[in-house]
């Protein structure tokens, strides 16, 4: 029996818990609690404090765990712990809230330091009228062209599947290039 994990990171309220909940076969075991400050409450009423945890059983001897990191800065001590041994990671960004873009980039860079595993950026909440377009986001986030930036609607299962698949394709590509060097 083997277990592998992927980490879903991103700023406060980017939609990490939603993303995992949409695809997990178990109810997301999340550690939400009421938001503490008035500033946070204006965005939503609960936040993830330790992590979220979702699961996808692949077959009899393979299980994929999805770990959502807490978005709030004061829980960032959890990140390194969660990132250990991960197959890859997803950075969620709320496409409607430019004030969080810089933070998303910081999170992306922090996780890249923890691990050299592949990652993708999910431009979440693309269903909302205020959502920035992928093209604009790539510029705003100053992403290199080889970084995968994917449109995402965390509430939509197909969309979540696509993001996970894109990440897996990147992982596969990386493995293939490594194998080439080896041979």
């Amino acid at each position: 029996m083997q277990t592998v994990k992927m980490v879903v990171a991103g700023p406060y309220a980017a939609g990490k818990t939603q993303f995992i909940g949409t695809i997990s076969e178990i109810d997301v075991v999340s550690t939400e609690k009421a938001t503490a400050s008035i500033e946070e409450q204006s965005i939503k009423n609960s936040t993830t404090v330790a992590m979220d945890f979702g699961r996808i059983t692949v077959d009899d001897d393979l299980v994929l765990y999805l770990f959502g990191t807490p978005g709030q800065k004061r829980f960032d001590f959890m990140w390194e712990i969660l990132s250990e041994g991960m197959l890859g990671f997803i950075v969620m960004v709320d496409s409607t809230r430019p004030e969080t873009f810089r933070e998303a980039v910081n999170i992306m860079n922090t996780f890249r330091q923890y691990a050299t595993t592949p990652f993708v950026i999910a431009a979440n909440k693309q269903d909302l009228p205020d959502a920035w377009s992928i093209e604009d986001l790539r510029i705003a986030l100053r992403l290199d062209n080889d970084v995968k930036l994917l449109p995402c609607t965390g509430t939509d299962r197909e969309s979540v599947k696509t993001v996970l698949l894109e990440l897996l394709f990147s992982i596969l590509e990386e493995l293939e290039s490594e194998a080439l060097i080896e041979e």
Binding site: K161, L165, I171, L172, L175, E176, A179, E182
Partner: peptide, 27 residues
């Protein structure tokens, strides 16, 4: 340390990722 994978390990890894891909496609 980032040890390079042996070809066998890399092949196993690829098979694992392929299983994940198939599973998620089927969801």
């Amino acid at each position: 340390e980032q040890r390079p994978m042996t070809p066998k390990a890399a092949a196993e890894r690829r098979s694992l990722v392929n299983r994940l891909i198939n599973r998620i496609r089927s969801l």
